[in-house]
Simulated assay, not measured.
Amino acid sequence: MEPFTYALLGMILMLSLVFVWTRKFGFLAQSPEDYADKGPQFDLRKHLAGPILCEGMIYGPTGRVTSRFVADMDVSWNGNIGTMTEEFRYDSGATQSRYWKLTLGNDGSIRAEAPDVIGIGQGVQRGAGVQLNYRIKLPEESGGHELDTVDWMYLVENGTIMNRSQFRKYGVKVAELVATMRKKEAA
């Protein structure tokens, strides 16, 4: 075999190993059942309710911080249907308003709808964790890309919610978000 063929086979093998590693052992390998009996019981109607302060960072594909933000959220519930408004302020000076409609099933399932979500997001609430999967369309000023999103929220004993999200295009991670959410009176 020629050196080019060896290099190409080596690259394919390495990409395959990275793909398997992330799907079997990394962030994407988590399951809601992993959190079913761990930590405090996360009830979205209780812990994600009222005025909430959110602070976070967005990391680019290389792992470097590309943006920081603070958001004011307000979440209200009518039975198992919640509405959430979000007002983001980014370190660049840009602002963004978002709106979510969340519907909780009695089995812990979650349906999430938002104007920038393509179709309907699906999720599950178990124990101290909440997982949400959806496809988001970025604003035009951010490129207008459509990204597959895996969103995890974890409830901490003091009531703070830790949020970690990964955004992928064609299966490749292009961004990651890490944020805290806590009730404003506790902030």
Rank of each mutant, 00 (worst) to 15 (best):
E33T: 07
D34F: 01
A36Y: 06
A36L: 12
D37M: 08
K38N: 06
G39L: 01
F42R: 03
D43Y: 03
L44Y: 04
R45K: 15
K46P: 04
H47N: 13
L48R: 08
L48E: 10
A49N: 15
G50D: 12
I52K: 05
L53A: 13
L53P: 01
C54R: 11
C54Q: 13
I58S: 03
G60H: 10
G60F: 10
P61E: 14
T62S: 15
G63L: 12
R64H: 11
R64F: 13
T66G: 15
T66H: 05
S67C: 06
S67K: 12
V70F: 07
V70E: 14
A71I: 05
V75D: 00
V75A: 11
V75C: 13
S76I: 11
S76L: 08
N78K: 11
N78P: 02
G79C: 08
G79N: 08
G79V: 05
N80Q: 15
N80T: 07
I81R: 15
I81C: 11
G82H: 09
T83V: 14
T83A: 10
T83L: 11
E86V: 04
E87C: 08
R89Y: 08
R89D: 07
R89N: 14
Y90T: 05
D91I: 06
D91K: 01
S92P: 04
A94V: 05
T95A: 12
Q96G: 02
S97R: 15
S97H: 11
Y99L: 09
W100E: 00
L102I: 12
D107F: 10
S109W: 09
I110W: 15
R111S: 10
P115C: 04
P115K: 00
P115Q: 01
D116W: 00
I118S: 01
I120E: 12
I120S: 08
